[in-house]
Design a protein around this nucleic acid. Structure first.
Length: 898
RNA sequence: GGGCGAUUAGCUCAGUUGGUUAGAGCGUCUGUCUUACACACAGGAUGUCGCAAGUUCGAGUCUUGCAUCGCCCACCA
């Protein structure tokens, strides 16, 4: 053991221990088959991303769970990995290429992928190093990336299986098209955003009745050219007679039918809807019902094509909108323009409005939907907080097929090959379409599908594909049978559909055994979202997103972790500011200095086990403060265990903070200062300190791994250089009991009384500006067991109050007074008492006391209360009243004397 | 339109089965380098617990309604 430094230097300590932990293999699971398994798979961050506060929150929670499980002696593994983030990465690489004056199209698929891989390797893995700085104790030897060969094989295996089951199909459907990234997106990747726009009222002329018009409202005049009908509700008396007649589409001018469809809302706008099957999902369905022509007037990039007419061709869709309005106006067909707010679907990646677009895509009919619902509703998988169950079930109840194909190259290419030279190959004919994990044996005769898979169609396999699935040997090697299902999943509710729900379905679909063996995890803890103090989401553009690495450099990883966890109630959003971290940093410093004080107080004896420390105590020297401290610590340990069971992390930090700062440092260490001058008690007091610090370090370790490990060693708790705090059980009560140390719970009461006494005496001194004087003369007119407590604890109390003497007196001196549980305390001012001030003070307290007595009396004389309330409550009220009356009498006595 | 969450001290939040005088951190005011820690210590000030009704002997806590803020879901042009 070594003398510790004057101030805590986190960066030095953190680097030292992280290196040691890696070298000692601390993050690898135990092979001991008798140990209970505990596992977590990390939500894979984007491989080219950097650490955000969201990651800090999420991974700190996982690390806490993981480290606590290690302390409990489980075989623990936390599997790390990264995600290839298809569209996001391809977008970034495209931008790089653009800046170099080239493009993906110019490079071609192979060269583009080469380039993207290089970009990934150059920028990738930063986040992994950052997670290490945070202290994340992942088993890094298991690092998985979704584009690794083995993982890719899992993705393709899943595809092929689902294809063979008939769950994957290809079809021409309306999809969400991103005109920036030129790919289809799933419904979940579209963010509905209220947007200020315009509602254009225009009029179309009836063909058989020139001069007669129908008024129609639209927000998208640029799609007029794609109109193939006008629809009204058949039940609408205003228009039903028009059904079957024709109307002119203004440009390109053409006769189109008026149709009746009950989809049309009679109450909206004019009750007349223009139908553009190629550019609106609802219109497409109407078109299907009425066999309407589908006129696609746009290019994939959102510019207008030749079908839109020569005035429009080549124009961007928003330019085309302006142009269309101008044309309507000049034709006299524009009735009015209103301001209007509507929901527009925005591409999550491209940040532009998506375009409903008809295209050939691959879809998945989700497997095992009912099983996935049951797993959660029956409690096989528990959600924390539970309310997310509703959200989850609602989504599954309304689930629609998943568009899994993306028109990008960065990802898993769809494992489907079409025989060369076959027009419209039949997907069910193996002669014409080959589907397999391995390419066809004669690749020269086939063309592979150009699309790749949605990234989530790879990450939904994460809990088992990271454990070697589908390869039997790899599964054996990584211990799938042992670590799957995983224990806990920690993630944000924003990806409950993207990821959580899909993983559950994937587990049910691909894993074997009973439903209990198939589920991917037993608990899902949903974190809140980290926001700034104004409640805004953190974002790069707002510049309100602090760099966690910078915070770690200034406050230490432990301070960051503790500060974040301290303000993270279960599932509520977190308003983050640096002050939170200061709290954590300050707590580290408190811990550090308490240990320093312990070291300065006396040589550290054998601290290598709880039993050894207890054996150093002379039980007869234990006084009420020792008992109270240990009782309080026992309570804290139990509260912590209970909070882990319900994932109440902020409650744990609060419990430990309060115990250590208030009970241990503010009271016990101060008390120790007086007691340690008594040589006969000193060793026992030091042993109690050692015991309390040891237990605090153990309980704190999951939250603050670095400083606790450092102190574990420097305070001599480690049995050897190679023992780590993560391997030591945090169990306290049973361990104490087995050492024969019985804790007197009643001591808590005695200590509480002394604390109140000290507090009151100090306040009295402060009132007379004597707060800093150490030589005050104090008298106590004792009540109850006050005299005994005073005499037994005289030295301590003198030191704590800052008194030269505390004398028990039998009659009240003429001095300022305060009422305490030990009796009435008097401060000797040698006659310099300010009688008026005293009267005011006591008078104020007396007022309060009178109202308390009145309300308690009223309660007790209430027939209904006395007859219905439980006996204990009534008894409590009576006791209370007696106490109040006693105090009142004492106040009256003091006032009279004044 | 449907669902969920929040509303407690100047700020951010605890308050888990309804039961003594509602707590913490930060901030603020006063004093202090008191043999660990000024990232600290001691003391003080600050609350009709969003509003209204109800249940109950008793409500910050349970019920209903309302208000404000936030989030999620939903094909009204």
């Amino acid at each position: 053991m070594s003398q510790i430094d004057k101030s805590y230097n986190p960066s030095e300590v953190e680097d030292k221990w992280y290196t040691r932990w890696l070298a000692d293999g601390c993050f690898k699971p135990s092979d001991d088959a008798s140990k209970e398994a505990y596992s977590i798979v990390i939500p894979p961050p984007n491989v080219t991303g950097v650490l955000t506060m969201g990651h800090v929150l999420n991974n700190t929670i996982q690390d806490i769970l993981i480290r606590r499980a290690r302390q409990e002696g489980k075989a623990v593994v936390w599997i790390p990995g990264t995600d290839h983030a298809g569209v996001a990465t391809q977008t970034k690489v495209n931008a790089v290429l653009r800046s170099e004056g080239t493009s993906a199209a110019k490079l071609g698929r192979e060269r583009f992928l080469e380039r993207a891989r290089k970009w990934r390797d150059d920028h990738g893995g930063i986040i992994i190093e950052q997670l290490k700085k945070l202290g994340a104790s992942c088993d890094w030897s298991r690092l998985v990336h979704t584009l690794d060969d083995d993982y890719s094989k899992a993705v393709l295996t899943a595809f092929v299986k689902l294809f063979k089951e008939g769950r994957i199909y290809r079809g021409k459907r309306m999809v969400n098209w991103c005109p920036v990234n030129l790919t289809a997106l799933s419904d979940e990747e579209v963010i509905m955003t209220p947007t200020k726009s315009k509602l254009y009222r225009m009029r179309y002329e009836l063909v058989d009745e020139p001069g007669k018009f129908l008024e129609i409202s639209t927000t998208r005049p640029e799609t007029i050219m794609g109109d193939s009908a006008v629809a009204v509700n058949p039940a609408d008396p205003r228009y039903s007679h028009l059904i079957g007649r024709k109307i002119y589409r203004p440009f390109p001018k053409k006769e189109i039918p008026i149709i009746g469809d009950s989809y049309v809302d009679m109450k909206f706008g004019t009750g007349v809807l223009k139908v553009t099957p190629a550019h609106d999902a609802a219109d497409f369905e109407i078109g299907q019902r009425h066999n309407l022509e589908v006129i696609d007037v746009m290019n994939p990039d959102g510019t207008m094509n030749a079908l839109a007419g020569p005035e429009f061709e080549g124009l961007d869709r928003f330019e085309a909108r302006k142009k269309a309005v101008e044309m309507l106006d000049s034709l006299g067909l524009l009735v009015k323009i209103e301001d209007y707010e509507n929901n527009i679907g925005i591409s999550e990646r491209g940040q532009v409005p998506i375009e409903p677009r008809l295209s050939d895509q691959w879809f998945l009919r989700y497997p095992k939907v009912d099983e996935a619902k049951d797993a959660v509703s029956k409690g096989l998988i528990k959600f924390w907080p539970q309310r997310w169950e509703k959200v989850y079930l609602h989504w599954l109840d309304n689930i629609r097929d998943w568009c899994i194909s993306r028109q990008i190259w960065w990802g898993h290419r769809i494992p489907v090959w079409y025989r060369k030279g076959v027009e419209n190959p039949d997907i069910n004919n193996p002669q014409e379409v080959y589907v397999g994990v391995e390419p066809p044996p004669d690749p020269e005769n086939w063309n592979q599908d150009e699309d790749s898979l949605d990234t989530w169609a790879s990450s939904w396999l994460w809990p088992f594909a990271t454990m070697g699935w589908p390869d039997k040997d790899a599964m054996e090697k990584s211990g799938l049978s042992r670590f799957y299902p995983t224990s806990d999943l920690v993630t944000g509710p924003d990806i409950i559909f993207f990821w959580v729900a899909r993983m559950i379905m994937a587990g049910m679909e691909f894993m074997e055994g009973g439903e209990k063996d198939k589920i991917p995890f037993k608990n899902v803890y949903f974190t809140g979202i980290i926001r700034d103090m104004q409640g805004r989401k953190m974002s790069k553009s707002l510049g309100n997103s602090p760099d966690p690495l910078d915070i770690i450099a200034r406050f230490g990883a432990d301070g960051l972790r503790f500060g974040v966890m301290n303000c993270a109630p279960q599932g509520q959003d977190i308003l983050f500011s640096e002050e939170r971290v200061q709290l954590g940093r300050n707590f580290c410093n408190k811990l550090w200095n308490a240990c320093r004080f312990r070291q300065m107080s006396g040589e550290i004896a054998d601290n290598t086990s709880l039993e050894k420390i207890v054996s150093r105590m002379d039980f007869s020297k234990l006084d009420s403060d020792d008992h109270a401290l240990l009782a309080s610590l026992e309570k804290a340990s139990q509260a912590v265990a209970k909070d882990y069971a319900s994932y109440q992390f902020n409650s744990i930090t609060q419990t430990l903070y309060a115990f250590f700062w208030t009970d241990f440092c503010d009271w016990y260490l101060e008390v120790s200062k007086a007691r340690m001058s008594d040589e006969s008690a000193k060793q026992t007091v030091l042993a109690v300190q050692d015991l309390a610090i040891r237990q605090t370090l153990l309980l704190l370790h999951p939250f603050m791994p670095f400083i606790t490990e450092e102190l574990w060693h420097s305070m001599g708790y480690a049995k050897s250089e190679s023992e780590h705090i993560q391997d030591v059980s945090p169990n306290f009560s049973e361990a104490l009991a087995s050492c024969g140390l019985k804790i007197d719970q009643l001591a808590l009461e005695t200590t509480a009384k002394m604390q109140e006494f000290v507090s009151a005496a100090r306040a009295l001194k402060a009132q007379y500006k004597l707060g800093t004087k150490r030589d005050s003369k104090i008298s106590l007119l004792a009540s109850g067991d006050g005299a005994r407590i005073l005499s037994e604890n005289l030295e301590k109390l003198k030191k704590l109050v800052g008194a030269q003497s505390i004398e028990a007196v039998s009659s009240a001196p003429d001095s300022p007074a305060a009422i305490t549980p030990l009796g009435t305390v008097y401060l000797d001012l040698s006659g310099a008492i300010d009688a008026e001030a005293e009267k005011r003070k006591i008078g104020k307290e007396r007022e309060k006391m009178l109202s308390l007595i009145a309300s308690t009396k009223a309660r007790l004389s209430n027939e209904a209360f006395v007859s219905k309330a439980p006996a204990a409550v009534i008894e409590g009220a009576k006791k209370q009243l007696a106490l109040y009356e006693e105090k009142l009498a004492e106040m009256d006595r003091i006032l009279k004397q004044l």
